[in-house]
Amino acid sequence: MRLIQFLVIFLTGIAILMIVKYTGGLSDYLIPPLHEILLVTGRDWTDFFMPAMNTTSVAVAGHVFALFLAAVVAFIARTGSRVAGLVRTAAYNLQAYPVVAIAPIVFIFLGDGLASRLLIAALICYFPLLLSFLGIFSDPVVDVEHFFRQIGKLNSTTELSIRIFENLDKIITVVTGSGTLAMVGTIVAEFLAASNGIGYVIRKSLYQNNLAAILASLFFIGLFSSVYLMTVEFIGRTIKTRLAD
């Protein structure tokens, strides 16, 4: 479904470009004709496919790292202790700051390699994940937890399992949504200063005014992004079905 949605949106975008081009009588230099876009995409596909794959793998790694970190921090912060309160306050305050704005500092300290892209991807999807996990982990599911409290057997494992199971739909939505953010974070990082990935290819194409190459890049990254999000949703659905049936 996601793949079809992406193809529909992408093809609609191309169609609008073509309508603008031919109704406005715009030059091939500004908006290349359709056959040129197809030619560039087909002939130089490895120039876009490999960077798109590179970007996706960095985004996936950043996403997984952010998921892990958010889960650990939310687990610690779910209690009513003073440290937990401090972590919660810090999380709420920090998430209000636009992470993209600190990306240049990351590049200054870590250079234009993998580490910077990974960190920015993780940071961009980390806060939405953390806030959602904090909410889910610290909100009691009274009707299920009551019995365990009554018999004195509500340990952290049981408590967390109950809260995760009862909020599985919400978690799947948040994880999928943050997957998109991880992709955005990686591409933004590549736009800014990286020397690798599809963002870097788009930046180069922009300097050359090569719209055909930009559109080919967008096609491949859209394709990879859709496949990744579909995979995340599939994993979520499988877990849910296994647990519920």
Binding site: F147, I151, L243
Partner: peptide, 23 residues
């Protein structure tokens, strides 16, 4: 002393048998 009420739910990921044996 125990207090039970009618809208309580069991964890949804295990069977009734597994839950009763666990508790």
């Amino acid at each position: 002393s125990l207090f039970s009420y009618n809208t309580e739910r069991l964890p949804g990921w295990i069977t009734v048998r597994e839950h009763l044996e666990d508790v």
